[in-house]
Nucleic acid binder design. Structure first.
Length: 261
DNA sequence: ATGGTCGTCATACGA
């Protein structure tokens, strides 16, 4: 089974790229973030014609996440238990959606950005991650993957120039501790070993052309699921050229049939 | 310290 995660930065503006991505890599399950659309706005015909089911949540242009699967899409959950709310205009339910796809529970997650250390959004980010960790502890007995835009650079190597981030989010010790807490609970990040390099490049200043990016998109898996990972790659070509998202898709291959026990 | 570029909706704001 092949799964992928991509911060698409508007699903409506890039639906053609999503369909091409699914075709190009024969993806079974695609988790999207920053869909920036309500469910009723989504153009789904091309996806359905390809045999995919879609579960999405979004409120106006804010955030939004989705799961696209051709190996089943069952027990859909919008938001995780205990997910903290932020209130208007940011809708908390638009940051997490989970479902069982091919026997694996997959969560598409859009971790809050945080804006600036000390900002209320930063406090919210840390609280959101702490509550996700709590909820995730109940999921460790079933094959589960927490995939998406974590908005954290776990190591200095995950930043093109960490000295430029001294007053920025994504690299602060509390954020890194929040990520590490999942690993301490037994979760494993399964893409790094197979797919080095960045997953996000700012639109400013030709950051992609100069490979000045961040590694912030991850697949965090339960141990049994991590053992099934046979490979992963970052589709850097998707980030090139006009009309690209500012993130590249991350693709992961899992051993075994979609319905394998 | 500032500005640069996107997407969305409306010409401001979040990333």
């Amino acid at each position: 089974m092949r799964i992928a995660t991509w911060n698409v930065n508007s699903l409506r503006s890039r639906i053609d790229r999503v369909e091409a991505l699914l075709d190009r890599h024969e993806i079974d399950v695609l988790a999207l973030q920053e869909t920036k659309a309500r469910e009723d706005q989504l153009p789904l015909m091309g996806l359905e014609a390809r045999g995919y089911d879609v579960a999405a949540v979004g409120v106006d242009q804010w955030n939004g996440v989705a799961l696209i699967s051709r190996v089943g899409l069952d027990d859909v959950e919008v938001g995780f238990p205990g997910m903290p709310g932020w209130g208007d205009p940011v809708a908390p339910e638009a940051r997490a959606i989970g479902a069982i796809c091919g026997g694996v529970r997959i969560w598409s997650l859009y971790v809050p950005n945080g804006r600036k250390p000390g900002d209320p959004h930063y406090v919210y980010k840390l609280d959101w991650l702490a509550r996700l960790r709590d909820a995730a502890r109940a999921w460790r007995d079933t094959p589960t993957a927490l995939v998406g835009d974590w908005n954290i650079c776990p190591t200095d190597d995950d930043v093109f120039d960490v000295t430029r981030f001294l007053t920025s989010t994504h690299v602060t010790p509390p954020e890194r501790a929040a990520f590490q807490a999942f690993l301490d609970d037994g979760w494993l990040e399964v893409t790094r070993a197979h797919a080095p390099g960045f997953t996000y490049w700012d639109y400013y200043r030709q950051r992609f052309e100069r490979d000045r990016g961040l590694k912030i998109d991850f697949v965090v898996a339960t141990p049994a699921l991590a053992e099934r990972v046979t490979g992963a790659f970052i589709d850097r070509e998707e980030r090139a050229g006009q009309g690209a998202s500012d993130h590249a898709p991350v693709v992961v291959d899992l051993e075994g049939r979609a319905d394998a026990t």
